[in-house]
Amino acid sequence: MKINYNRELCQGHNRCYMLAPEIFDVDDEGYAVLKIEGEIPAELHDKAQLCVDNCPEYAIEIAE
C-alpha cells in the first residue's frame, strides 16, 4: 500500500496529521507533508485509511 497525497488540493485542515502523525507531518504554514513516500508498513494501513476517509478536500488516496 502507498499513499498519494495531492498538495494542490490540501487546504491545511490537518486531519491527517492528527490521526496519523506517523504518516503525515505538517509544515510551518499548516500544510500536510507526507512522511512515507514508499510502501506503508502493514501496521499503519488502518491509519492510512483513516487519513483518506477524513480528508475534507479529497487530497489523499490509497494507491495499491
Partner: peptide, 14 residues
C-alpha cells in the same frame, strides 16, 4: 470513522 466534515469550510477559505 469516516468524517470529511466541512465544519471549518472547504476550499481556499478553510
Amino acid at each position: 470513522q469516516k468524517n470529511r466534515h466541512g465544519a471549518f469550510g472547504l476550499g481556499i477559505h478553510r
